[in-house]
Design a protein around this nucleic acid. Structure first.
Length: 339
DNA sequence: AATGCCTCCAACCGCGTGCGA
DNA sequence: ATCGCACGCGGTTGGAGGCAT
C-alpha cells in the first residue's frame, strides 16, 4: 500500500510564494494560530499544499525569524554543534535563536561544509547533484546494513545521522563503572530507581539488539546500562553548563543571551532545565576539553568511544559526563558503546 | 550582448515518529 | 495491538541571479 499523498496536488500553486499569498497566510495564522496545516489552505483560501504553508511560515514568515547574514559567532557555534550532533539541523537551529533549520542546513552546505571538508573542484552544485544521485543508489543498499537508531558513530568519530529520532541508548560499561553507577556515582541520586528499571529492561532490550539473534548472557546484561535519552532533553540539560555558547575553554556564565533560547526550547515542549540562582556548573569537564578544538573533539571520541554498532554513544557519553566527571575521567578509556 | 557555468536558498519530497481513535 | 492522521525532520531539487568568457 502506497503512502497517501499529503494533498492532491491538482490545481495547487507551486514554486515561489507571491506577496499576496504570504499576506493571506500571515493573516490567517495571526487570527487562528498555527497547526491544522492540512486544513489551513482550504480555510484560508490558499491554493497551496498544507505542507507548503507550514514550511513557508516556519522558514520565512514567522515574526521571530532573524534575517541577515550569519555572524561569526553563530558560524562558530554551528561548526561546534555540527561536530557534536552531525546533520541534526533542527537541534542546531534550536541553539540559534531566530535561525531556521533550513537556513542552517543551506548555510552549511554552501559555506561551512566546503570549508570543513575542504573545498574541491568536485564540490560544485552540478557535480554535487550528480554525486548525490549516485549516492542515493548506494545509500539504498546501505540501509539494509544500517542498524536501527538515529545516530551512527563511525570509527573516525564522525557522526552521521538519519532522519529519525533516537531515544534509546544501550551503553555498555565495565563492571567497576557499573558498580559506580549502582552506588549513585554515575547516575546521580535521583536516578537510583531508574537504574533499577534499567536493569529490568536490559535483558529483553539487549536480546532485541543482538545482531545474530542469539541468546544474551544475563551477567553481561547486568554489566550494561540501558538509558532512555531524549536527545532534545539532553541538549536542554546541557544548558546548565552553558558550554555550547561559551568560547572554547571557558566555563563562566555567558550572560542572558541564553534566556530566549531556553524559551524556544520550552515552546517546543522539550524538558528544558533552567537552573536556579546560584546553581553551580555540574561538569567542568565538557567545556574544558570537548570544545578545546575540533581536533580535540575527534580525539576525544577516538579515546573515549570505540563504536561497534550504531546507537548514541554520544548521548550516553555526554550523560555520563554530566553526572560524574571524576568517574568519567577515570573510566573513559574502558568505556565502549555497542549495539 | 549573448551564452554558459556556478552559487545560493526557497521549496519540495519522502520517511519517521507521536498520538488518538 | 493496530491503524491512520498530523507533524517534524533531513535530503534533494529547481530556478533566479551573479559572474566569467
Amino acid at each position: 500500500m502506497g503512502r497517501r499523498p499529503c494533498c492532491s496536488k491538482e490545481g495547487l500553486n507551486r514554486g515561489a510564494w507571491s506577496a499576496r499569498e504570504d499576506q493571506i497566510l500571515v493573516d490567517y495564522i495571526n487570527t487562528h494560530g498555527e497547526g491544522k496545516w492540512r486544513d489551513l489552505p482550504r480555510r484560508a483560501g490558499l491554493k497551496r499544499c498544507g505542507k507548503s504553508c507550514r514550511l513557508r511560515w516556519l522558514n520565512y514568515l514567522r515574526p521571530d525569524i532573524k534575517r541577515g547574514n550569519i555572524s561569526g559567532e553563530e558560524e562558530e557555534l554551528i561548526v561546534r554543534l555540527h561536530s557534536l550532533l552531525g546533520n541534526r539541523w533542527s537541534l542546531i537551529a534550536g541553539r540559534l535563536p531566530g535561525r531556521t533549520d533550513n537556513e542552517i542546513k543551506n548555510y552549511w552546505n554552501t559555506n561551512l561544509g566546503k570549508r570543513v571538508h575542504g573545498g574541491s573542484p568536485g564540490s560544485s552544485a552540478a557535480q554535487r547533484r550528480h554525486s548525490s544521485k549516485q549516492k542515493k543508489k548506494k545509500t539504498a543498499a546501505e540501509v539494509e546494513q544500517q542498524p536501527a537508531g538515529g545516530i551512527v558513530l563511525h570509527g573516525s568519530g564522525v557522526i552521521r545521522t538519519k532522519a529519525s529520532r533516537c531515544t534509546r541508548v544501550f551503553f555498555t560499561a565495565p563492571a567497576d563503572l557499573h558498580e559506580a553507577a549502582g552506588s549513585n556515582l554515575l547516575l546521580g541520586d535521583q536516578d537510583q530507581d531508574d537504574f533499577t528499571t534499567c536493569q529490568k529492561n536490559i535483558v529483553p532490550s539487549a536480546s532485541a539488539l543482538r545482531e545474530d539473534g542469539g541468546d544474551v548472557d544475563v551477567d553481561d546484561c547486568f554489566n550494561s546500562i540501558l538509558l532512555d535519552i531524549n536527545i532534545d532533553e539532553l541538549m536542554s540539560s546541557t544548558e546548565e553548563l552553558d558550554f555550547l555558547n561559551s568560547t572554547p575553554g571557558a566555563t563562566g556564565d555567558q550572560g542572558g543571551s541564553n534566556d530566549k533560547n531556553r524559551g524556544d526550547h520550552q515552546e517546543k515542549g522539550s524538558a528544558a532545565v533552567v537552573p536556579g540562582d546560584g546553581d553551580e556548573c555540574m561538569s567542568p569537564l565538557l567545556p574544558d576539553h570537548l570544545f578545546a578544538s575540533d581536533e580535540a573533539i575527534l580525539e576525544e571520541w577516538r579515546e573515549c568511544l570505540h563504536p561497534v554498532g550504531s546507537v548514541t554513544g554520544l548521548a550516553a557519553a555526554m550523560d555520563a559526563c554530566l553526572h560524574s566527571d571524576q568517574e568519567w575521567v577515570e573510566n573513559r578509556g574502558n568505556v565502549s558503546c555497542e549495539l
